[in-house]
Write a protein that binds this DNA or RNA. Structure first.
Lengths: 218, 218
DNA sequence: TTAAATCTGTGGTTATAACCACAGATTTAT
DNA sequence: ATAAATCTGTGGTTATAACCACAGATTTAA
């Protein structure tokens, strides 16, 4: 268990919790490590989510279960990532998503009720844990809100502009975006080549300049 | 204060908390009532959110502050609604939104730290309060996720279809949607008349039938 | 009950984004 | 260093959604 401490310390759920405390805490929480092979299912759509998971090594995919049975990729989880937390906190009884291992992975599973209800020995960091959980959910909320604000715009140009402005920089300042073209297109929910077309047009119109991931608004 | 109990009991933040407990609880939380006139500001974009608010009477607008200074309506809060909770829980120091009274309103303000940190007298329902808060945030998360899943689709037809299927009914079953055309268009982030056009086409193509808010998928 | 206001559907036009195919650029692997 | 793989831009076509204007339907108010 202790060999995963480095990863766990980078997890937002355990932020501001000292490594010394971590060990006792994990015992309190009844944390268990689970290893899964590629293509193994960690949570099946329709089942009740019973654990909040933290990915230690490997890679997971969150798949959206279509009402016709088709699955589509919703998100990917990488090392240090947390999953099923919203489902647990919302008390969902039938998961709308399937969590599938894309590669051999190790995860840490935490019972939700143990996180929420102070443990008998009432470790002092328990309140911090709950605070972190609130912070994770609230943060995701704000991020999605902001993305919806962008994706909801009617034109591709408006989406790009708003996205760039969301960095809050001054005009003329260099913006380094964390996406390549394909990823940006996915984020904006538009076609990749349509995005490239529009970017070229915006450059021609003197609205922006860019090269690779570096953008400038005029 | 007590005259607002009926509204407070309908609030998700206080669900499963008995009215008897409510009074002591509100005292613990240092709840204060505030009345504002139309067009008064409850939270200004750029300011640090200090309280979680519950709207008792009246109506509030959440306005998105554009990076160019323009404000656009993001959401409306109606009686019993909660606001600024995600901002507080995420520890945001500069609110990206302004909360404005659309009419004379009364709100209850709760200090965030008091919600999170168990009060000295550690009232037994405190844990329930935190649980409710987690549930509110997690629920909003899932709802937004699901909406993003719909809005992100490339064609209007796909959006409508997915939206209708999200009700999870069998084909042929009657679906009563909670929106009129304009609201549905807003939800799907499309033009109202374009939506009407597409609905007509889908009916012609034998995919769906509808009349007012009643829809059927074939 | 009539008038006013709101909602919904529809025709028509135009702008725009999706889609396809491909080539040059860039990165990664060997 | 070369080949392979991936990423990005671009031309061209087509489907589609935005947009405008308006009329009939429906709801609300007086």
């Amino acid at each position: 268990m202790r060999k995963y401490f480095d990863i766990l310390k980078t997890t937002r759920l355990f932020s501001d919790i000292e490594s010394g405390e971590l060990e006792t805490m994990l015992k309190c929480l009844g944390a268990e490590i689970k290893a899964v092979d590629r293509d193994e299912i960690l949570l099946l759509a329709g089942d009740k989510p019973r654990h909040i998971g933290i990915l230690l090594t490997g890679r997971l995919n969150i798949l959206w279960e279509d009402y016709d049975g088709n699955r589509s990729l919703m998100a990917a989880v990488t090392s240090g990532g947390i999953f099923a937390e919203a489902l647990c906190c919302a008390g969902v009884t039938e998961s709308p998503v399937t969590v599938l291992a894309e590669a051999y992975s190790t995860v840490m599973l935490l019972g939700f009720s143990r996180i929420l209800h102070t443990c008998p020995s009432s470790c002092s960091y328990h309140i911090k844990l709950i605070e972190n959980m609130l912070s994770i959910l609230a943060d995701k909320n704000l991020r999605m809100q902001s993305r919806m604000e962008i994706v909801g715009l009617k034109s591709l140009r408006a989406k790009v502009l708003r996205y760039l402005k969301s960095f809050g920089y001054e005009r003329g300042q260099n913006i380094v975006i964390p996406f390549n073209r394909e990823e940006l297109a996915d984020f904006l929910c538009v076609d990749r080549s349509a995005l490239s077309h529009e970017l070229a047009r915006m450059k021609k119109d003197g609205l922006i300049d860019y090269k690779k991931n570096n953008f400038v608004i005029f």
